[in-house]
Measured scan of single mutants.
Amino acid sequence: MQRVNMIMAESPGLITICLLGYLLSAECTVFLDHENANKILNRPKRYNSGKLEEFVQGNLERECMEEKCSFEEAREVFENTERTTEFWKQYVDGDQCESNPCLNGGSCKDDINSYECWCPFGFEGKNCELDVTCNIKNGRCEQFCKNSADNKVVCSCTEGYRLAENQKSCEPAVPFPCGRVSVSQTSKLTRAETVFPDVDYVNSTEAETILDNITQSTQSFNDFTRVVGGEDAKPGQFPWQVVLNGKVDAFCGGSIVNEKWIVTAAHCVETGVKITVVAGEHNIEETEHTEQKRNVIRIIPHHNYNAAINKYNHDIALLELDEPLVLNSYVTPICIADKEYTNIFLKFGSGYVSGWGRVFHKGRSALVLQYLRVPLVDRATCLRSTKFTIYNNMFCAGFHEGGRDSCQGDSGGPHVTEVEGTSFLTGIISWGEECAMKGKYGIYTKVSRYVNWIKEKTKLT
């Protein structure tokens, strides 16, 4: 034993070699072989497995989906700052455009905790909710729209109204504003409101030439003092309507412009014939205590009207009353817009006519005020429907199939267009061939041609 100890002390290297040989010859039971080890760690190889990531292109799944990435790591994937920024906006807080917040056709661009709407022409605001041009839906104005110097929408209202708090709607500024039905039992019968379409306001006024200088022999019209197929109006439903009495009662109609003036057809009036105007009328054979009678003290036909040349060209006249009318729910003026808007309103496509005229061709006159909704007829169809001249200051309205029309005794009465609950004068009943005849239409004086003249002559002093 002493000898062994001496050998170990003198030859430590020998001992180490012996131990190493023993270990190498022993069977290893701690580690699995290569094949079995792979069965336990069965993990798919990654895209760049075996390579240094710093030297390969980034992978979106590896960089940002398996674990949260930084902007720089995302930049490695896209290799483009702009594309990385677009991805980053949604990656950080989701897609803010998912709810489609942009209105009126706006395009949404996502941002971090926010979004941006790219608005089409005519709109602005956070969600493109603000109209900035009158060309689109009248700028959301209830009545009139004008573009300011910086191309912003400025709404306005006709006389007797003021802008509401929203700067879009119009509200009454006087007790009985024009064009409004205020009798409670008839307010439910107000005709369907007309909503502004998209309009090209630059070209809204037709490029028409008034044929002022045409000389033409007097034409022989049949029954051209021209509501057939209409309905009984309720008291106060058309408070701007008046009836004219002269040699015979209810020979023509008219509309209240203001307390002192009536507008009617020029062919209705004769110099030297006494005319009485009755406002607030409903049943011409009954006294309903809503009527107001006034005498006409002055007749002003349009300066281009000449019955000797043509009885229905420039067929418009103004009547001055001896005493002002007292405005109330049964006696209310009709609204008159400017030339541009009167023309736009007419193009809405349908209007209402009213009167006490004959209820059928050569038949009896109506006792109760009649009204009828009539569609506008395109000019080409209008011209083809008659052998008589249709001037540019006239328009056609009615039904091709016949059966409904204005008729004798309705002449001078109103053709009105309702705009968001307020009625505007767009025409004056003038003439036609018979009444409600198939293929024939009622012919009306186009008020847009005469609004400046009306307003100039009827100013209240």
Results as ranks from 00 to 15, higher is better:
Q2A: 10
M6Q: 15
I15W: 05
T16W: 08
L20W: 08
L23Q: 01
L23S: 00
S25D: 03
E27C: 04
A37K: 15
A37I: 15
I40D: 08
L41A: 15
Y47T: 15
F55R: 15
Q57V: 10
E61V: 06
E66V: 08
C69S: 15
C69H: 04
C69I: 04
R75G: 15
E79S: 06
E79P: 15
E79M: 09
N80M: 06
R83N: 14
K89S: 06
K89L: 04
Q90R: 05
Y91Q: 15
N100R: 12
P101R: 13
P101I: 11
G106Y: 04
G106R: 04
C108F: 02
D111H: 09
N113M: 09
E116Q: 12
W118T: 09
P120G: 07
F123G: 11
G125L: 02
C128G: 03
C128H: 03
E129T: 05
L130D: 11
T133Q: 06
T133N: 11
C134M: 03
C134G: 02
C134F: 02
N135P: 11
N135Y: 04
N138A: 14
N138G: 07
R140T: 10
C141Q: 00
F144N: 00
N147A: 09
S148N: 06
A149M: 08
A149E: 11
K152P: 05
C155G: 00
C155D: 00
S156W: 09
T158M: 08
Y161R: 03
R162L: 08
P172C: 03
R180N: 01
V181M: 11
K188W: 09
T190V: 11
R191C: 13
R191D: 11
P197E: 04
Y201W: 06
V202E: 09
I210N: 03
D212N: 11
D212L: 06
I214D: 05
S217W: 10
N222D: 08
D223P: 09
D223M: 11
R226G: 09
G230F: 12
E231Q: 06
E231P: 10
N245C: 04
G246W: 07
V248M: 11
D249A: 12
F251G: 05
C252V: 00
G253S: 08
G253I: 12
S255Q: 02
V257A: 02
N258W: 01
N258Y: 00
E259Q: 03
K260T: 00
I262V: 10
A265Q: 03
A265G: 03
A266R: 02
V269Y: 03
V269L: 08
E270D: 14
I275F: 11
V278L: 07
G280W: 01
E285K: 07
E288H: 09
H289E: 05
V296Q: 00
I297N: 05
I299L: 07
P301Q: 10
H302W: 07
H303Q: 12
N304L: 13
Y305Q: 02
A308S: 12
A308H: 07
I309A: 12
I309T: 06
I316N: 00
D322S: 09
D322R: 03
P324I: 02
V326S: 14
L327E: 03
S329G: 11
S329A: 04
Y330V: 09
V331T: 12
V331R: 01
I334R: 00
I334D: 00
D338G: 13
D338M: 04
L346F: 09
K347T: 14
K347E: 13
G349Y: 03
G351E: 01
S354P: 10
G357D: 15
H361M: 13
H361A: 03
S365T: 14
S365E: 15
A366I: 13
V368G: 13
Q370R: 12
Q370S: 13
R373I: 07
P375F: 06
L376K: 12
V377A: 13
D378V: 04
R379G: 15
A380L: 07
A380N: 07
A380C: 12
T381H: 12
I390F: 06
I390V: 10
Y391H: 13
N393S: 14
N393M: 03
C396F: 02
F399A: 04
H400N: 06
E401C: 08
G403H: 15
S406E: 14
H415V: 04
V416C: 09
L425W: 00
T426D: 00
I429Y: 14
G432E: 13
G432C: 14
E433N: 13
K438N: 03
G439T: 14
Y441H: 10
Y441T: 10
G442T: 15
G442D: 04
K446W: 01
K446L: 04
V447E: 00
R449Q: 15
R449W: 15
Y450Q: 00
V451N: 04
V451I: 13
I454D: 01
T458S: 10
L460A: 08
